[in-house]
């Protein structure tokens, strides 16, 4: 169906009848609004092109291009220009198609349910390795009850067992190293003087 075949349709309706035309109209409307914002902000602030160019570190010619909406002004550029004139750019979108709800930006997404996983058990070993400084012992953390193969420099020496939680908390199950055995100190002996 063309314009000639249906004279009741306006040019706007003709453009809006296809997706390409519809999106082009939306882009043109946005660009027009941006230019309106620039014009209003400049009139309200009374700022000169020279000052604006200095603040934005661009030439006066570039400022003129931006303010007239020449070319495709980036959103970031529009925000810079408005901020240089003392205003802040805010964006919003309103529903146009029937049945579309208004947008809500401050709603939180669904929270992920935390799945409690049991602590994992590990064995702590010391394993000898040959380094450029000679044989050196290095700690090894291996899953509990795992089978270790010996290296040419000896069997790994088990130092202890630990559990590691999801959050990375390490708890020893057994003492990592032997402790001193001593009787409790209760009362001193009085020396004879």
């Amino acid at each position: 169906m063309t314009y000639q075949n249906n004279e009741e349709r306006s040019l706007y309706e003709e453009r809006a009848s296809t997706w390409v035309g519809l999106l082009g109209l939306a882009a043109a409307a946005a660009a027009w609004q941006v230019v309106r914002l620039f014009t209003a902000a400049r009139a309200a602030s009374g700022i000169s092109s020279k000052t604006l160019a200095e603040r934005m570190s661009v030439t006066e010619g570039r400022v003129s291009q931006i303010l007239s909406g020449e070319g495709n002004v980036h959103i970031a550029t529009a925000a810079r220009v408005l901020r240089a004139m003392g205003y802040e750019l805010t964006l919003t979108a309103v529903p146009v198609d029937p049945g579309k709800p208004p947008l809500v930006l401050n709603r939180r997404g669904p929270r992920k349910q935390a799945v409690a996983r049991p602590d994992r058990a590990y064995d702590v070993y010391a394993q000898m390795f040959l380094t450029h400084e000679g044989p050196r012992a290095f700690p090894l953390l291996v899953p509990a009850h795992d089978t270790l193969r010996t290296t040419p420099y000896g069997t790994p020496v088990k130092l202890g067992e630990v559990t590691i939680s999801d959050r990375g908390q390490v708890r020893p199950i057994r003492p990592i190293r032997p402790e001193w055995q001593a009787k409790a100190t209760e009362k001193p002996r009085l020396a004879t003087t």
Binding site: R177, P178, W180, Q181, A182, K183, T185, R189
Partner: peptide, 15 residues
């Protein structure tokens, strides 16, 4: 130097 027993003696002399 694996830790084993510790024998502790504590005495007090008074002046």
């Amino acid at each position: 130097a694996t830790p084993g027993d510790v024998q502790t003696d504590l005495s007090v002399a008074i002046a």
